[in-house]
Design a binder for these strands. Structure first.
Lengths: 128, 128
DNA sequence: TGCGCAGTTGACTTTTACGTAAATCAGCGA
DNA sequence: TCGCTGATTTACGTAAAAGTCAACTGCGCA
């Protein structure tokens, strides 16, 4: 496992711009360490970036992704805090479940559209 | 099944503003009929609106949702057109599959976070 | 017939998530 | 020491997806 990554290494690996990565830092999503002025990304920053991009693909806003990332972090040991965190986890799970359902529904309609296309192709094949 | 719906009926049912619905019309996603100047939405428009909002929840842009809606519509009978449509369907399916995978991954991490929380709660319970 | 309400149009504004450009800096190989 | 390469900071720009506001219209009804 590498110690650190430069910003351009990460842009190449994930297909995003330096601007994007710095923007996520500004938003408080990642906190790379510095050597002088230049950023050095640890493996944990890389994991975070992967999670951020995953969240983006699912249509979560930066604010929502921030919330999700907060959830991943272990909460401070206090009982109230932990229960609050458990509640948040369930909220996020519900949102994900909704998205999962949306995907299933869309997939089903794709299947129907495909069937219809194949049916039409068959007709054309027969009539030729 | 109702014949038509007014715009406010749909805003209430789907929790969106009239501006939003008119915006989707401007973008060519729905084409309600008119009685004079006022819009009348048929059941098919309502179905379209449902599909649009589903697409939005999944993080598709209006342009992408437009593409998906095009896919639902049966293509013109020509063979080339139908094959093109089949290719598009598979593209969209791949995107959905990616999202599905992203959901699974996020769900798993949620589970881990929950485990960790429950573990901490157990520790607290024991030590009391 | 006058009022209020629901609907429409058009223009301007806002928020989010970056893109882009300019100026600056730090290391390093010739 | 020069110049290049890659990184940084600051600031302005922008596209998408609506929000907001103002002015107008038509209709049911008291």
């Amino acid at each position: 496992m590498r110690e650190t990554y430069t910003i351009t290494e990460l842009t190449k690996e994930f297909g995003v711009s330096t601007r994007t990565i710095r923007f996520y830092e500004d938003e408080g999503l990642i906190k790379p360490i510095r050597r002088g002025r230049t950023r050095l990304f640890r493996p944990s920053d890389r994991v975070l970036l992967r999670q951020i991009l995953r969240g983006k693909r699912l249509g979560f806003s930066i604010a929502e992704i921030k919330e999700i990332i907060e959830v991943y972090k272990a909460p401070s040991g206090e009982e109230g805090q932990i229960n609050l965190m458990l509640a948040r986890i369930n909220e996020k799970r519900d949102e994900l479940e909704q998205k999962r359902q949306d995907i299933e529904d869309t997939m089903r309609e794709m299947d129907e559209a495909e069937e219809s296309c194949l049916g039409r192709l068959a007709e054309l094949g027969v009539s030729q």
